[in-house]
Simulated assay, not measured.
Amino acid sequence: MNTPDAQNLHGGRHGVPDMNPINNAHVARPGVAVVEIAAADDATAFAVQQLLAAHCAIAPADRTTREPGAPGVRLRCFLDLHQEPDV
């Protein structure tokens, strides 16, 4: 759960500094989701995003973010299970 007091495993607020917290508008109705991918590198993160895009409509991310001092990258995309994927 992401509340104003939520902290990640490292004690920081909301995880990655460049990513805004997930809010109610992001998950306003059933079938809509926010997916945050944690991966070792950009190629892996974008490959996972492509796998998701094959199964449902997504608003894809065009860049990954890095948390200073932490390994790997993160990528956030938005899913809508009610729409067909753009293939």
Rank of each mutant, 00 (worst) to 15 (best):
P4D: 07
V73D: 01
G72N: 06
G69Q: 04
Q83I: 10
Q50C: 08
I37R: 00
A38S: 14
V16R: 02
N23E: 09
A57W: 11
P68I: 03
P17F: 01
A6T: 12
A54P: 09
A54S: 13
N24Y: 14
P21L: 03
P17E: 04
L81E: 11
P17S: 07
H82S: 15
P21W: 07
L51D: 15
R74W: 04
P60F: 00
V27W: 00
V32W: 12
R74E: 06
E84D: 12
A57H: 13
R76C: 01
A28Y: 10
E84G: 09
V27L: 04
N20R: 14
G72V: 02
G11F: 01
A57S: 11
L79P: 03
V73N: 01
P60H: 01
H14E: 08
V35P: 00
G72T: 01
N23W: 04
P85V: 06
V87H: 14
Q83G: 08
A40D: 11
A28T: 07
A28S: 15
C56Y: 06
H14R: 13
G11N: 04
L81K: 10
R66H: 12
A45D: 03
D42W: 06
E36D: 15
Q7V: 14
Q49R: 05
P4L: 05
L52Y: 08
C77Q: 06
P68E: 02
P68K: 02
H10K: 14
G11M: 01
C77R: 06
A39S: 05
A43Y: 04
G69R: 08
H14N: 13
E36V: 09
E84R: 15
N2D: 15
A59F: 07
V35K: 00
A28V: 10
A70V: 10
R74Q: 11
P30E: 12
A25E: 13
T3E: 12
N23V: 08
R13H: 15
V32Q: 15
A53L: 05
V34R: 04
L9K: 14
A39R: 00
E84T: 13
